[in-house]
């Protein structure tokens, strides 16, 4: 009898949604529990860091790692899980390309601390104290992991074998990845798995008519036609520059895609691709008109890189 594959799950800077997403395979979770040995899953089971540290290097067959690398503890665990795992999977947008936490790369540690611990209107902090990596309490010493200036993806921290996009990945895709793993049918390392090879637009049922727009609308400003392409109605939609796989979910609620499945195959920078796609629907014959129309797009960086700033070419903004 062949030994069951040993599988681990871990979360770093995450929201917990990726762990819930694993459970979203619903009754198949029992099949999974049958087919593999889950050796580490802090959210669901009683195992500790020490257990993992005690394992031999490479003794975990596959580790599904969600969450971004925001602090020193996240990085330590990324290195630990890499060392112990034969296959390391970046699961979900945060691990894959920084996710929402990577919007923090529009600021830095000092900026975030200033806002959270001084600037916020409910904060009462006359002494301007800040969390410290090491602090002497009356009763003893307390420690905190160092908070980084820049959020990194898992792949920017350690070598990663597979990437599963999505915030969070959709259940049918997660299951497809588990199946491929169990059957030994995973593609070559370095691949994106649990997603399609096209764009969200290719899966979307909203009809495209090659229309151009004279005006962009923000989502609260317009009630769109539920049958037609949102982008062609002037709502910035990330579908054209986002990898297929979710089934074009967000447009089914009459709201635009925000790009959580990351760039489509062959695209190096999702934001740049999206910029071109959005510009392509601008109905302008003069420079002035083009300028006027695109000036209605509210927040290019936060929209085009909503889930992937850490994984973008420039990775972060320049701050003082």
């Amino acid at each position: 009898m062949v030994a069951k594959p040993r599988v681990a799950f871990y979360w770093a800077a995450s929201c917990g949604g990726c762990d819930i997403a694993v459970l979203e395979i619903r009754e198949k979770i029992l099949d999974l529990a049958q087919a593999v040995d889950i050796v580490f899953w802090p959210v669901a089971m009683d195992f500790k860091y020490q257990d993992v540290e005690a394992m031999e290097d490479g003794s975990i067959d596959a580790c599904f790692f969600n969450g971004a690398i925001r602090n020193a503890e996240n990085e330590r665990l990324a290195r630990l899980m890499r060392a112990k795992s034969k296959i390391l999977v970046a699961y979900g947008s945060c691990a894959y390309e920084g996710g929402i936490p990577a919007l923090g790369n529009l600021s830095n540690r000092a900026g975030i601390f200033e806002t959270v611990y001084s600037g916020s209107p409910s904060t009462a902090n006359p002494d301007q104290s800040r969390p410290r990596t090491s602090h002497e309490l009356a009763e003893g010493e307390a420690e905190l992991p160092a908070f980084y200036d820049t959020v990194k993806s898992l792949g920017q921290t350690v070598d990663v074998d597979y990437f599963v996009p999505g915030c969070p990945p959709q259940a049918h895709q997660t299951w497809a990845v588990f199946e491929a793993l169990l059957k030994g049918e995973l593609p070559p390392p370095g691949s994106v798995v649990g997603a399609g090879q096209k764009t969200v637009c290719d899966e979307c049922e909203h009809v495209k008519e090659e229309k151009r727009v004279k005006q962009f609308f923000r989502i609260h400003e317009i009630i769109p036609d539920a049958q037609k392409c949102l982008l062609e109605q002037g709502i910035v939609c990330c579908g054209p520059a986002t990898r297929s796989g979710c089934g074009a979910l967000c447009p089914t609620a009459n709201l635009p895609c925000r790009g959580c499945y990351g760039p489509p195959p062959g695209v190096v920078d999702q934001g740049a691709k999206l910029l071109s796609a959005v510009a392509s629907v601008v109905d302008a014959d003069t420079e002035e008109e083009a300028e006027r129309i695109v000036s209605q797009i509210a927040d290019p960086i936060g929209t085009f890189y909503r889930f992937g700033l850490a994984g973008s070419l420039l990775r972060r903004s320049r701050t003082q």
Binding site: E287, I301, S317
Partner: peptide, 20 residues
């Protein structure tokens, strides 16, 4: 060049947000 003038103003704004 129409493509260019539809893209570049947006790229300008993006670069500005990048702090360039």
């Amino acid at each position: 060049n129409y493509k260019t003038f539809r893209r570049m103003p947006l790229l300008e704004r993006l670069l500005d947000q990048y702090g360039i």
